[in-house]
């Protein structure tokens, strides 16, 4: 067993972890944060996307031992009490969720993108969600939702 200190959704944890344990396993099985999904486990689908020190990463291909002293944000950390984050709100308003399996990953890719670039183009969005497969929506609604979330965050609410 090896001991690490990580911050997840603003909360500090000291955890004993296994050498081969992925961040995805820790989040789901140890911390009960099951919003982050396992899809392929091979880096293809992005259902497991979380933010590590503000960047989008695949938790299925990240050893938790390597996240020692780092900060992790998952889908559960976006909401403020009962209040949805603007990205989540925008996904709902734009019908960007069908079965919902890809949604936490897409939202976390969007979150990292909007932290870095508050005014992305359609192409910027499509590039940054290239690692998020969605078999339901055809991507049009999620892309629209992310662009509208950017507007909301910038305070240009035109709805």
């Amino acid at each position: 067993m090896l001991y690490i200190n990580i911050k997840v959704n603003g909360k500090e944890y000291e955890l004993g972890v296994k050498p081969y344990e992925t961040l995805l396993e820790t989040l789901r099985d140890k911390l009960g944060l099951t919003g982050t999904k396992l899809g392929c486990g091979d880096g293809e689908c992005g259902a497991c996307t979380v933010n590590l020190n503000g960047k989008a990463v695949l938790s299925c291909l990240t050893l938790v031992a390597q996240t020692d002293e780092k900060e992790i944000l998952t889908i559960e950390g976006l909401q403020n009490g009962a209040e949805l984050h603007p990205i989540q709100e925008s996904f709902v308003e734009n019908s960007a969720i069908q079965c919902g399996y890809c949604t936490p990953g897409l939202v976390m890719s969007a979150k990292a993108l909007l932290e870095e670039n508050g005014d992305p183009t359609d192409e910027n969005v499509r590039e940054k969600i290239a690692n998020n497969l969605c078999r339901c929506t055809g991507y049009e609604q999620p892309v629209r939702a992310i662009l509208e979330a950017a507007k909301k965050i910038r305070g240009e609410n035109d709805r």
């Binding site: 050498p19 081969y20 992925t22 091979d42 880096g43 695949l58 299925c60 291909l61 990240t62 050893l63 031992a65 390597q66």
Partner: peptide, 23 residues
């Protein structure tokens, strides 16, 4: 050695007893 792990954790080699992180 494990760096990003984006190759290693896809292939998950069986003949490894110790992972060495270079951070």
């Amino acid at each position: 050695v494990v760096a990003g792990g984006t190759e290693l954790l896809v292939h998950k080699p069986l003949d490894v007893d110790c992972l060495v992180g270079l951070s």
